[in-house]
Design a protein around this nucleic acid. Structure first.
Lengths: 188, 188
DNA sequence: CGCCCCATGTAACCAGTTACATGATTTT
DNA sequence: AAAATCATGTAACTGGTTACATGGGGCG
């Protein structure tokens, strides 16, 4: 149940509403965890009724009211406990690998198109991450003496960058391999 | 619903029982997809009743009977259709990254222990993958003229190897970063 | 007038995990 | 005698996705 803990970390970094959290999950937190607004609202409600979070209704002008959540003491304790528990190193779960092995029984041209498409997406993500790194960490606008929180955010981002670079290189390997095989076998 | 398709690919590579599939999901297929036997049995039953698979009960000596599944024509068609549909390039979902950012609000020593543990697991996985590569693809026992299916299996395995290497390098980066933060910062 | 942004949620469904259950055979 | 392997499954639960729903404000 790491979504709960991701929310705790994000709210410790900065309190905010469900809507704001959803947008963070499209950005920085989303580098390594995704969540839809529906699920975020549901989990926030559960965490609040469990006493992990405090809510404050904030009236706004020209906008609907929002519920600003922040971490209560039991929430901080729950996060700390989780941080001290070992978690399972997760395994890959890669649909594309299924497709690659499936291509032995089907048209390889379709696989080439699909892999090229994925390669473009990962190229875009890499560019996006690199731009974020420049903006927040290595560019001239970046805060000169980074604090511990920023160093940790940066090393997480470097992980995303390394992942995208690795993936792109692998997809190139896949493309070269499939093209070398040519048309191996007609579908029976 | 990629488990269905992973099962179709695996059964095309070689027909087998639910138990055998579960074993395969601990090995080669498991490099990029995991599944428990419970789920495999449930999905197999559903696929069979949908006419995607054919079953044959095989009596064995000294062992329980087994149900050997193989791919029926509609199953092959379903796989082919899926192979021609684009799929979403998936995003990372990495609990450890949540922990790393959470360490800004907690004891970094616990994080160091956890990261070291993960690094060992990924080191073991890498060694396991490399051994498999030597055994099946690059060693003297490997089949001399590899067919298309083997080339594709190999490129998937290379992806797993690249992933583990990248992850290990990143975890080293994380360790160096956290240890540097733990050390007293020299006054500017 | 239509579309996007802000902001919140409900309901139905699906995929996957964990726990429970059985029983023979083979290995240590 | 105990543990592991072969072989099959059910039941309860949890986490996540998709579809549906509402409503004001700003912009072109």
């Amino acid at each position: 149940m790491a979504l709960e803990h991701a929310i705790l970390v994000s709210l410790l970094e900065k309190p905010g509403s469900g809507y704001e959290l959803a947008r963070r999950f499209d950005r920085s937190i989303g580098y390594f965890w995704t969540a839809t607004h529906q699920q975020i609202y549901r989990v926030l409600a559960r965490m609040e009724s469990a006493g992990l979070l405090a809510v404050r209704v904030v009236a706004q002008q020209g906008r609907p009211d929002k519920k600003e959540y922040s971490v209560a003491a039991p929430g901080r304790a729950a996060l700390s406990q989780w941080l001290h528990e070992p978690i399972e190193p997760e395994s890959l779960r890669h649909d594309l690998a299924v497709k690659i092995r499936g291509a032995a029984f089907d048209d390889p041209a379709a696989l080439v198109r699909e892999v090229e498409r994925h390669r473009r997406v990962h190229g875009d993500r890499l560019a996006h991450y690199l731009a974020g790194e420049l903006r927040d960490f290595t560019g001239p606008e970046a805060p000169a003496p980074p604090d511990a929180g920023q160093e940790l955010q940066h090393v997480v981002l470097r992980g995303g960058i390394a992942y995208e670079r690795m993936t792109i290189a692998w997809l190139d390997d896949v493309l070269a391999t499939v093209r070398r095989l040519g048309a191996p076998r007609p579908p029976a």
